[in-house]
């Protein structure tokens, strides 16, 4: 029986499943577990139980997580009242795959195992074929066009940074086109914040490398809410001035905390964690709408987050990292 793809139905199913997400307390117990086996035992008390039972050893945790993610993917497809919008949240996997495949084609060319994601909207095999033959016409136009453009440019000179940027821009062009056509203000707002945060990260990266605006300009993604002139100013300013300038924007706290940690440790890990938390918190704040896509997207992001957390914990446990180190790397839990 096909369930009716109505918002009411989909949101109600998600509401039940939200109760089965890992709680903060469970995550803490996993972090404090003695060993990887112990951590898995905590997991076996949750909705992951059947998957844990199938597992041969803790080292196969990755298989468990991909199975769970695949289940979430199928679930969203099944209940989404508006697949055009939910698909936007899976596009990052397609474009990740395209980046890997294109760089593989133009840079190494060897037949090694590629880190491809199975979660995209387009099967990996189709992407592979399309990258080998950019004129095959098997991709949707917004992907085919950028693959063709990259093919033309790479004949002259291969620039991996350029490939990334072109793909990112093509992806967000498409995302914003769909959000506007569908008049979905939630998705529009979400992706706008994502673009802003990615651009701010590019800004910090460029500053760390001591580069000027010309370098940064190449990496910026359009459609954000911060103007280009902001970035051209910010790249020249000292960090304190930058923090002051973004104070009035919604990203003030993220930038302030992220930059402080960056100045101490020299990495953007904290900024990236704050970025994810920020977006997750936004979705958390709007997920109570019973007649919109928010709760469904919220569940997807919560699940992605949860799987990320489990992965961090399992990697840490297998490598015998102290609990404190693992905790530092964990993100907020959605529930």
């Amino acid at each position: 029986m096909m369930p009716q793809p109505s918002y009411e139905y989909g949101v109600a199913r998600v509401r039940v499943l939200e109760t089965r997400l890992l709680t903060r307390e469970r995550i803490e117990r996993m972090v404090d577990a003695e060993s990887a086996e112990e951590a898995l035992k905590v997991l076996s008390e949750t909705s992951y139980a059947p998957l844990v039972a199938e597992l041969g050893s803790p080292y196969e945790y990755d298989e468990l997580l991909s199975k769970e993610m695949k289940r979430v993917r199928d679930f969203i497809d099944e209940i989404s009242p508006d697949p055009a919008i939910t698909d936007l949240f899976f596009l990052k996997y397609d474009f990740h795959n395209l980046k890997v495949l294109l760089k593989h084609r133009y840079l190494s060319g060897q037949d090694d195992e590629l880190p491809l994601a199975q979660m995209g909207t387009i099967p990996v095999e189709v992407l592979r074929k399309a990258v080998e033959d950019p004129d095959s016409g098997i991709l949707p136009p917004f992907m085919a066009d950028v693959v063709k453009d990259i093919d033309e440019i790479c004949v002259l000179k291969v620039d991996p940074q350029r490939i990334d940027t072109m793909l990112d821009r093509a992806m967000y062009d498409h995302i914003f086109e769909v959000c506007r056509r569908k008049r979905n203000s939630f998705a529009l707002r979400y992706f706008q914040m994502q673009v802003d945060l990615l651009n701010l990260r590019s800004l910090l990266r460029a500053k760390r490398l001591g580069q000027g605006f010309d370098f940064l300009k190449e990496m910026l993604i359009p459609h954000g809410s911060l103007s280009v002139s902001f970035y051209s100013r910010a790249i020249e300013q000292p960090y304190e001035q930058l923090i002051k300038e973004v104070e009035s924007t919604p990203y003030g706290k993220v930038v302030a905390e992220g930059v402080q940690d960056f100045l101490r440790g020299g990495t953007l890990t904290a900024f990236e964690r704050l970025m994810d938390d920020y977006l997750l918190n936004y979705v958390k704040s709007v997920r109570y709408n019973p007649f919109g896509i928010e709760a469904i997207v919220g569940y997807l992001l919560a699940k992605e987050n949860e799987i990320k957390l489990i992965r961090i914990i399992m990697v840490g446990k297998i490598n015998d990292l102290p609990a404190e180190k693992i905790r530092e790397r964990l993100r907020d839990v959605y529930v």
């Binding site: 009716q4 139905y9 949101v11 109600a12 199913r13 998600v14 509401r15 039940v16 209940i79």
Partner: peptide, 17 residues
């Protein structure tokens, strides 16, 4: 009908309710 779709969604995941 509106409430029924929500109800069906909940019962799909948790028939006890």
């Amino acid at each position: 009908a509106i409430a029924g779709q929500s109800a069906a969604g909940v019962v799909t995941e948790d028939p006890d309710k």
